[in-house]
Structures are given as C-alpha cells and as structure tokens.
Design a protein around this nucleic acid. Structure first.
Lengths: 337, 337
DNA sequence: TTGAAAGCGCTAACAA
DNA sequence: TTGTTAGCGCTTTCAA
C-alpha cells in the first residue's frame, strides 16, 4: 500500500500538496498538479490510513453505539426486533453521514466508556441507561452524546436525549381497552425502570381515569433470568386468566404471551385481549396481528444519528430533549366485550 | 487524558518501561517499578489511544463485517431475523475474543474493501457475496477472510468459508412434503444465486426422486424491488392456489406468504402447506409455528468469529470450508393429505 | 533493569 | 503555488 509520502516522492511533490488534493483543498494547487496527483492516486491505488489520520487530527469519524446489556434480558440483544430495527436505521444514518459505527455491548457502563475513549470516538449514542449511570458517563466522556430513551438527563452541554411519550402511549392503550369494555386489565413487563416506569405510570393513569383500582398482583412480572422464557410466559398465561386484557410493554412480549395463552387452549382475542408496544415487524407479521402502540423506531435511529452528527460538527441548535409521538394501531388482538 | 509519555515524566521513567508494564511484559521490570507504574496508571486514569497503538503496530484489532446490500432486498438488512441473529452471535464472539466489530454495508464490494483497508482491519467476515465478486476481494485485501454462505471460494490462502448443506436442506423439505402426500409443490425465492441456487437444486432433486416433474412456473419469484412486499406476496398467494404446498427459502418469506394466503381466506395448513428455512425466531413465534429446515444461525456467527480470530492469530489449522448440518423441524404448517 | 530514539502515516502551521 | 517540519501517542529495537 502506497503512502502519501511515497506518492510525493514519485511525483516530486511535497506530502502537503498530495494531501491537499486528496482532501479537495485545491484552491491553491495548479490544475496540472491536481491532474498528476489524481492519476498517481489512481494508478497506485492509494488507500488512506485512517488510523494515522485519526491520530494526527485527534478525531476518529467513529460513532460509538453503546448498548447496556441487562443480564436479565435476552442474551442476544440485537435479536430483539425493536433493537434491531433501531440499530439498522442508526447504521444507515451514520454511514450516510460519512461516519463509522462501532457497537459496544457490555453489562456495565465503565467498560464501555473505556473503550469508547480508547478509540477516541467523536460521539456516542447511549441506549438503555437508567438511573445514575448517567453521571459516570458525563464525568468521563466529553464528546457529544445522544441518549435514547433515557431519563434524568444531566444538565451537561452536549447531551441530547431522544425519548418517547411512553406515559401517553400506555395511557392510550389502557383507554382503548377501557373503551372496549375491559376493566380487569393486567400490566406485563420485566422491570419497572426507565421507559417501563413511564409506561407503568401511564397504565395507572388510564385505570384511574376509568375508576379502576390497581393492586400489586396486576403487575405480571417476567422473571426471565430465573426461569426460561418458556416457563415465564406459561406462568403468566395462567395468571392472566383472571383478566380480560393485558397490556404488554413490547410486541415481543405480547407475541410470547399470546402463544403461551393459546397453548393453554384459550383464544386471542376471544378469551383474552392483548395490546403491545413498539409496532415492530414481529407484531405486524404475527397473526392475529398485534394491536399496539406505534412508535417510529426507525425515526428514533435516524434522529439520533443525525442529531449526533450535527452536534459533532457543531451545527446543532435544537432542543436538549426530543420527544417522539406515539399512536394507537388497532389490529386484531383486542376484542370488544 | 494522560499519555504514556506524560506518565513516564511524572514517574521519572522511560516510556518503554511504562509501556511494558501496561502490557504485562514485566519480566525485566523490578517489582517496585511495576507497583509505582500501576498506581500512576490508576491515579491518572490512563486510557490507551488505540489509534496510536494501531499505527505503531500496524494492526487494528478491528474485524470488519461486510454485508452486501442487494438493492432488491429489504433496505434494512439488519432487520431480517436471520441476519440479526447471526450478527448478534458474531458481535458477541468478536467481543469475547478481544476484538472490535465494525460493520460495513454497501451495495458494491469495492467501497467496502476500500473502507476495510483504510481501517486496516485485521480480518474480515464477508456475507452475501456471490459469483465472481470474490476475485475482487482476494486481489485487494490480504488479511484473513471468513466468508459465510459463499460459493466458488478462491484457492487463496487465508480464506475460509462457513457454509451450510443448503442442497440437502431443501431436499429434506421436499422429501417431507412428498411423504405427507404432496405432489404439487412450488418453490418461493427472490433469486436463484448463492444459497438459493443450492436450495433450488435440492428442491429439484427432491421432486425428481419422487418422480414429480417441474416446470418454470413452479418457481414463485418474488419481485420485491418492482412492487412492494405486500403486493408481491399477495400475487404469489394467488398463484399458490394451484399447489398444495410451497417451499420458501426463508422463514421470513414463509410467514409473509402465510399471511397473504390467509388474507385470501385460505387456511394454513389445511388449504396450503408451507415449509420455511432457517428456523428463525420469527418462524418459531409465529402461529401456526412454521415447519422449517433448521440451521444453527448462532453457530454460524460463533464459528465465523472464532475461526477468523484463530486465522488472524495464526492458530487455525482446520478446513478451508466448514459445512454446517441442517435438519427438519416439524411444526404446524405442513398437513398430511 | 531501564532508557533513547526511530518510526508508524498523516495533518497543518508556517515558510518559501 | 509548493515545501519543510513538527507533532499525534504508541511500540520496539538496540544500547546502556
């Protein structure tokens, strides 16, 4: 692989000149020289060494995408339809902006920051953080950050959060169920933090508005870590028989619950109504198609990518927090009773 | 961020010594010095600059994962359940081996090689190449390559392919259908290259063995690019009425076909039997669960990652081609007639 | 057991 | 319009 220096020698030019035409800074280069350099670049198949460039510029063109893997979730994070839809959009956006994506997955944020700093990533997209994890990041990483679905965002400059009206989404779901005549409604999730806390709040508000009381057992909690997914859902399917409807915090869960319920010989939605969240590919393709709260997952990725690039290039002047809208998508898993 | 040089000054040592203890080359360093350096590393929160290290070592610890995006497929490659399962396994394997994954997606291989060379990736995983695309890569990229599902692999050293008994898989599928009494069987795919060519061959062999003739119209060809997915599948669902069973080259397609068929008021498997390929999450969660040809997608990713790392570290002494087995998974979309 | 110094390939301030 | 040169932070050979 030729280097700029070698090229310069071959052409009897300085590295500066060669470097300049490579980068299109040709205002002060004569047409003839440009031509000569271009030809040589082509002939010798010059390929820039990004590491060297990064080192010299103290930039990297890398956008780190950090996913916090909660061990109680599925081990294959990228397999989750919601995550993969978002990552896919993110990847495309990053690439189209001329940056490179590097994915970091770990179960604690410290290691991630380490690696991101090591690579000198120009910016970071953070996903799945919750609580005070924030502080650690803010202290140790000084480049722009876009977080997705985070809360309690710090006041730090250079941090933008892309969120969703989670509370409203869950509220809409419950309201829909209530309007369809349901009053015995359960909430299904694996935790009560982050977005799920918001969704739970919206769920409660929906019940309250309808004058329905809530007690702890109405929270169908998934213990994915302790038992397998299979058993978990089977247990909850049994418990769900006390209800006429259950609100699930994701389409993935909705589908799995539906299967477990059907495995017990009950029908969806005749015997149990189910409503999901996300409007992911899985829920759309499943039959009966999952009634759900739509969020524009792709938009989340695109926005996150674009905003981060703008921040990196110091062109961003939008809000510190962007809240994406939600909407109800009526499909086939909610029955009027 | 402290640098090694600064640390060396602070400690009144040379950069060599500091670097040595950082890398555990402590055979020739006194215990006291080791202690002092370690403490300083900690106190000043030293973070290595990987770019500088890469430049000096002429290595990168980057494994490039190149996906060729065929424009006639879905735009969001990572959204395909099969791809995302594999990438997920790959990511984990790469990470566990101490490497970093960089994804490159493009619709032509030239650009991908460029970028991979630019980053000086230690090795590459190639996915979805077909035909002579191979040659280009072999000529221009000299580090180890692991390809997944490729054919006509070059004789070049340093190239290993992870394949699948695709032909056998399709054959098993057809044999299963035949044993269940089916004789009017269609083949559904979007193309006839790469793995799909093999699967088609296995399909033909299965028919032949059963003394069933094949004519061109039995190839249900998806034209995803020209029309939307919706319309495509709707068309093919109509055409499928001439058959009692169709073999789909992926579970994703199987599910979509099933939906289109059901949208026409026909039932699966009562009116049409469907068999898929991959055994992906989607097919497992769908109801009726898709009868399919299992391939160990996760294993593909894990193997690809591990073998590539071994090649990079010059420890690989296995075959140039690894063929993973397939098996039939009977679920609920094939009826005996 | 420790250190000096060259060099990895590129950028950019400055000089000519 | 073009060239000189000093880094960027780290590794590694060779010398002390």
């Amino acid at each position: 692989m030729v280097t700029i220096k070698e090229l310069a020698e071959i052409l009897n030019l300085s590295t500066t000149t060669v470097s300049n035409v490579i980068h299109g800074k040709t205002k002060e280069v004569s047409g003839a020289t440009i031509e000569r350099v271009r030809e040589a670049l082509d002939e010798y198949e010059y390929v820039p060494n990004i590491n060297a460039s990064n080192l010299a510029r103290n930039k990297s063109k890398i956008i780190g995408v950090a996913l916090l893997a909660r061990p109680d979730k599925y081990p294959n994070l990228l397999t989750d339809p919601f995550i993969s839809e978002m990552i896919s959009a993110l990847e495309r956006t990053i690439r189209e902006n001329g940056y490179y994506m590097m994915i970091y997955i770990a179960d604690e944020i410290g290691g991630i920051i380490q690696q991101i700093s090591s690579w000198n990533a120009d910016g970071v997209i953070l996903f799945g953080l919750m609580g005070d994890t924030w502080k650690k990041v803010g202290e140790r990483y000084k480049n722009p950050i876009v977080s997705i679905d985070c809360f309690d965002v710090t006041e730090r400059k250079n941090v933008v959060n892309i969120g969703l009206r989670d509370e409203e989404g869950a509220y809409l779901a419950v309201r829909h169920l209530v309007r369809k005549g349901h009053r015995r409604i359960a909430f299904l999730s694996d935790n009560c933090h982050g977005v799920d806390r918001e969704r739970f709040a919206g769920f409660r508000r929906g019940l309250q508005e309808a004058g329905i009381s809530f007690c702890e057992r109405d929270f169908l909690k998934l213990m994915l870590l302790e038992k397998g997914a299979e058993e978990c859902f089977s247990d909850l399917a049994a418990r769900s028989e006390e209800y006429t409807a259950v609100f699930c915090v994701s389409d993935l869960y909705a589908v799995q619950l539906a299967n477990a319920v059907r495995a017990r010989g009950r029908r969806i939605p005749e015997d149990l109504s189910i409503i999901g969240f996300d409007d992911s590919l899985l829920g759309r393709l499943y039959r009966p198609a999952i009634t759900t709260i739509h969020q524009d997952t792709e938009m989340k990725g695109v926005l996150a990518g674009n905003i981060l690039v703008q921040m990196i290039e110091e062109k961003y002047d939008g809000e510190k927090e962007v809240m994406l809208p939600v909407s109800l998508v009526e499909r086939d898993t909610v029955k009027k009773i």
